[in-house]
Every structure is written in structure tokens, then in C-alpha cells.
């Protein structure tokens, strides 16, 4: 039997919806303003008081692709992000499988250390290492360093997926004379396919968003979009529309991809500490 009276229940529900709406507006308005500004003409984007209604234009996007190296930077970002995602998968997937099979713990510890350590801790020796072999400013150096972001993500996303495979399946396979490499390739991998999708997308998003390594280790030719943001800000002091168009385009790939995996997002981002 519930003692609360229906009237106050109803008003509490309405109050909850109103507050949720306000919270939602606070969350979305800045992003909305960024996208809105990217469709404004140069005289309107700095208009004061700011304008909510205006005739939208694609001018900023056209300028971005035709008069700035935006597409070149976007290509660099793609090379580094796809390369490091593949590297993370190739290194991390078998490691997660072995960790789950043998219960060795170093892959999980590596994951934690890489998650906790400030990127600056690695940067100094990497800089010296890559300078020694003349790799500063190469895609190779950027892909390798971003692998330090992607490999731990792949391991921590996949570990629970491998752990969920009943051990009896492994044992039956072994009785049939199936060696671990074959079990991994033929049995375990197909069973964790959704985990592979989640880890691929999360690795991609984090590699795409990562700033520090390409800031220091890229050159003007291999600069990623994120590292090139400085150029856009420099030019943006006179051209906010262009700056907001660049910001919108840079944010688009991670936002679209994150939406696809949102069901697994929170447990993926919290090392499985929270079931989303």
C-alpha cells in the first residue's frame, strides 16, 4: 500500500519533466549555437546583439574545403585514426583473449597504467626515440603513439566479452585437438563480434579526439585535424563562421559513431565498472 497521494505524485512527475527539459537545453544549447554559427555569413556571426534568425549559408563550409588545407588535415586524421585503430585491434584482441584464457593480469594492468598516466609522461622519450630514427612528423610515429590509446581500449572492452564465453566451449575444442590459436580464430572471435564493433568504434573515437601526441609529433604536412585546430583558431579571430564550421566538422565523426554504440558506451568507458 502506498501512502503518497496521487496529486503530489503527478506534480512531482511534471516538475521532473520540466527540470529534465531545462537540463537538456543546457546540455545541447552550446553545441546548437556552434552549428548555428557555422551557417551564418561573416557579418552576421559577429553581430551584436547575437542573431538567432538569419538566412543560412554554406559559405563557411565551401571556404573551409576550398581555401584552407582542411581536407588535407582530414585525410591525415583518417590515416592516423584508421591506422592506430587497426594497430590497437591487432595487438589488443589476441592479448585480451590470452588474458581471459590464462587469467594473466598484465594486459589489464597495462590498460590501467595507460589510462592513468599523463600523456606527457611518454612524450619526452618518444620525442627523443623518434628523432633518433628520423621519424618525427611521420604517419608511422603518430600511428604508433596513438596505438598507446587504442590498444588499452580494445583490451578493456574485449576482456568482459571473452570472459563471457563459457569455458566448456574452450575445453570441448581442446579435447577435439584444437590448439589455442585455432580456438581464438575459429571459435572465440566470432563469439565476440559485437565486442569487436564496440572496441573498434571506441578506439576510433578516442584516437580521433586525441590532441597531445599529434601536437608534438606531427609536422605541417602530417598534422591531424585536432592538432590543426590552432590554425583555425588563429584565423578564427577574424572569421568565427569558418572556425565554427571547422569545429562542427571535426566533432561530427565521433558523435555519429558514439551514437551507434551508445548502449555499450558507459560500460566501455568505465572499464566495465558500471553497467550502462
Amino acid at each position: 500500500m502506498s501512502m503518497s497521494d496521487p496529486m503530489s505524485d503527478r506534480s512531482a512527475r511534471i516538475a521532473n519533466s520540466v527540470m529534465l527539459f531545462i537540463a537538456g537545453m543546457l546540455v545541447i544549447t552550446p553545441t546548437f549555437w556552434m552549428v548555428l554559427s557555422s551557417f551564418k555569413q561573416s557579418f552576421e556571426v559577429t553581430a551584436y546583439p547575437p542573431k538567432l534568425f538569419f538566412t543560412p549559408t554554406l559559405e563557411n563550409y565551401v571556404t573551409l574545403s576550398e581555401r584552407t588545407p582542411f581536407l588535407h588535415y582530414a585525410f591525415n586524421s583518417m590515416v592516423v585514426t584508421v591506422g592506430s585503430t587497426l594497430l590497437g585491434l591487432i595487438l589488443g584482441t589476441p592479448a585480451a583473449f590470452v588474458a581471459s584464457w590464462t587469467r594473466i593480469t598484465w594486459p589489464a594492468i597495462v590498460t590501467l597504467v595507460a589510462r592513468m598516466a599523463p600523456g606527457t609522461l611518454f612524450l619526452l622519450p618518444w620525442y627523443l626515440m623518434f628523432r633518433q630514427v628520423d621519424m618525427i612528423g611521420t604517419y608511422g610515429a603518430l600511428i604508433l603513439t596513438h596505438g598507446v590509446i587504442t590498444m588499452p581500449i580494445v583490451i578493456w572492452v574485449l576482456l568482459p566479452f571473452f570472459d563471457n564465453i563459457p569455458r566448456s566451449i574452450y575445453e570441448a575444442a581442446q579435447v577435439d585437438g584444437c590448439a589455442p590459436a585455432r580456438v581464438f580464430w575459429k571459435i572465440a572471435l566470432p563469439l565476440v563480434s559485437s565486442g569487436l564493433v564496440v572496441s573498434t568504434i571506441l578506439a576510433f573515437v578516442f584516437s580521433w579526439n586525441y590532441f597531445l601526441f599529434s601536437l608534438v609529433l606531427s609536422n605541417s604536412d602530417t598534422k591531424t585535424l585536432i592538432a590543426a585546430s590552432f590554425n583555425f583558431i588563429g584565423e578564427g579571430s577574424t572569421n568565427w563562421g569558418g572556425l565554427m564550421a571547422a569545429a562542427t566538422m571535426i566533432a561530427l565523426p565521433p558523435l555519429v559513431l558514439a551514437t551507434i554504440v551508445q548502449r555499450w558506451l558507459i560500460s566501455g568507458l568505465t572499464l566495465g565498472a558500471v553497467k550502462g
Binding site: 546540455v27 556552434m34 579526439n209 585546430s229 568565427w240
Partner: peptide, 16 residues
Amino acid sequence: SPFMMPPVVAGMMWIV
């Protein structure tokens, strides 16, 4: 959407 966008983009947006 806020925490999956690059922090760098959040910075660009809030500068404006």
C-alpha cells in the same frame, strides 16, 4: 554528445 566530442572542439566552441 558533450563528452564524446573532442575537448579541443569544446574549447573552440566556448572561445566564441
